[in-house]
Design a binder for these strands. Structure first.
Lengths: 353, 353
DNA sequence: GAATTTTATGTACGCGCGTACATTATCACT
DNA sequence: AGTGATAATGTACGCGCGTACATAAAATTC
């Protein structure tokens, strides 16, 4: 040692234990002069943690998922929190086939905690998640909810979001409102459907039968896959019933944009001949013509919250399932959404002014 | 050991050295039964490498940069390559202040290699990069070029891209073509300016004076910051000279979209009263009205290529500057761009059909 | 000023692998 | 059978830190 001590250096650099101010100085100077940089790998090894927060992204062939506003925002939020807490962010693109669950990430110690994006409600997924939970690993889902399964998750209140959007359409005077939803394995989709039904039922358009079969005209329900193309294609299906549809509420902006393009190509002017509302309040909503009414979701905050919780949990409680016996409080956040009204949803009178 | 051996296990799991087939089996079985998972941290430590490819993203306050098509695509490309080579991808959001260069990433061994996105041509940046280069660390820039500095970089031929776009506008019959560029610290911007000038000069609109001052009407040149808003604002400036402008070529789609919105708000219909062309061929180009003519850039491939090179370099040659004396061949790729013609750039006759 | 506590530093070890080297088993060939 | 080569496995050590424990120095107490 250039100074005098030996592993006091460790103490100095980690600010642990009492150390004379003068010694600190000496050590720091020496480190400086020697161009010493602690090896993160060795540190992690000695600390028996990786310092990484894993972020798992779904594998969607052909689609470059990043392009989705949705993921981008969440990632930014996670990134911010990760930085604040001194972790690093490991991006993991889920593999197509050899996906023996997320659990290997933890077993191999690649990550101390993990955030899962774009999970779907399928048997395999449930199994993989239950495994994670049973082992007591700190993980968190974002923007997906599993009923009757107690997973940590940060979601938004999409039922309410959809409800407000549809209610707004109703208030604009539209009555015959169709709904273009996404695939049902996303809780997003089913939540939005609930909101749609609630709004329509409250308005007296759907009758409350028993409690599941509502009187929804089949022509009013469509399913896409959240892509613009699927929205475009849905337009022609709705078009066949154009006489009994005033408005369409789409479960995300990309489909809404596709819808608008489709309708326009079929001769219906969005915002005039037919009202449209979307969901996500993505950048695209601002550049369509007319601008798209949409529901904004605090994706950024959701990502940040998930990262915060999961990282605190990783550093706090032990990872072993055994010791977590004290049933850690379930973390299930539901954030508020916010309707952003633009002209695509205006009633005809208004839009013609 | 459940089987019989000891550190033969290591050999089995790493496929190194000759081992009897039977032993392999035994070891594997034992590992299975014991639920053994090698610790990635210990492995990395012993191998003295992190297994991480660092991807540095610029810090842009307020702007959630991920939302940019540009970064998204590049990241996807990197992600793909990283997976193929068995590395992990460490996302690093560049900090605002305490940015003592990229070099700490390597010194602390957090990454084995590094890709830098969104760098700019500023003195500090140059200094930081030169440091990296002098130390012989494997890094690569994407979509940015430094003249008179020999950094490894994967760029696209933006001069050619701009040239083609402008030439196309000329071929559509537009003569008085303005150019809304981005900030000059991006080589992207200066390259596009060159392409613009070349096309205009070839068409005989600009006279070739000496060799830098061209006869460009000041009203034809604008500068934004690649945001939609800056495009929107630029529209009114161009509008003041609307009598001597037929078309505007914008240095990216977001500004082009802003321009279109701005012109429309001022009563000029894009694609009819004024032709527009953008750059990047982002998703947005498909959803504007009219659809935006744009230059597509193979961002995905660029990211992938950069990742490949940098990772091969990291595993191949040694990292020490000393031994790299054999002047590794400079890696500077320039990929081709591709003009995508849509209706925003059509001549009046055509668009009115 | 000796006994006791508090503060500051040194010592020693282990984290869990990879791997150079030593050792032993196997086999081919003379 | 013997020599040497090659294949297969075991032994031992170190990677660079954190940290429990031991120890030495300083501060406090009576």
């Amino acid at each position: 040692m250039a100074g005098v001590s030996e592993a006091t250096v460790s103490r100095v650099l980690n600010n642990v234990g009492p150390i004379k101010e003068e010694t600190k100085q000496r050590v720091r100077e020496a480190a400086e002069r020697l161009g010493y940089y602690p090896s993160a790998i060795a540190q992690n090894f000695a600390r028996r943690r990786s310092g990484n927060l894993g972020v798992v992204l779904p594998y969607v062939p052909k689609v470059h998922i990043f392009s989705t506003y949705y993921f981008s925002e969440i990632l930014n939020g996670i990134g911010e929190q990760v930085r604040e807490l001194g972790y690093d962010m490991l991006l993991i693109f889920r593999k197509p086939g050899l996906d023996n669950g997320y659990i290997d990430l933890f077993r191999s110690q690649k990550v101390d905690a993990c955030i899962l994006l774009g999970t779907t409600d399928t048997p395999e997924e449930r199994k993989a998640l239950k495994e994670l939970k049973d082992e007591g690993y700190p993980f968190c889902l974002v923007n997906q909810h599993f009923d009757d399964e107690q997973f940590p998750e940060v979601d938004a209140d999409h039922e309410q979001g959809a409800y407000h959007a549809v209610k707004h359409l109703l208030e604009e005077g539209h009555r015959r409102i169709a709904f273009l939803n996404g695939p049902p394995q996303y809780s997003n989709s089913t939540d939005r459907l609930k909101g749609y039904i609630r709004a329509m039922t409250e308005a007296g358009i759907f009758k409350r039968k028993n409690d599941f079969t509502e009187t929804i005209p089949p022509a009013w329900l469509g399913t896409g896959n959240y892509s613009r193309t699927s929205g475009y294609e849905a337009a022609s299906r709705f078009f066949q019933n154009r006489d009994c549809i005033d408005a369409v509420f789409a479960a995300n902006d990309r489909m809404a944009i596709g819808l608008m393009q489709g309708f326009r190509d079929l001769g219906l002017v969005p915002g005039v001949d037919i009202a449209i509302a979307g969901y996500d309040d993505s950048d695209g909503a601002r550049i369509t013509d007319p601008p798209l009414t949409s529901v904004s979701v605090p994706f950024y905050q959701m990502g940040k919250a998930a990262a915060k919780w999961v990282l605190l949990r990783a550093s706090g409680s032990t990872t072993d399932a055994e010791e977590t016996g004290a049933a850690d409080p379930l973390y299930q956040i539901q954030m508020e959404t916010n309707l952003v009204i633009r002209s695509s949803s205006m009633s005809n009178q208004t839009s013609l002014e």
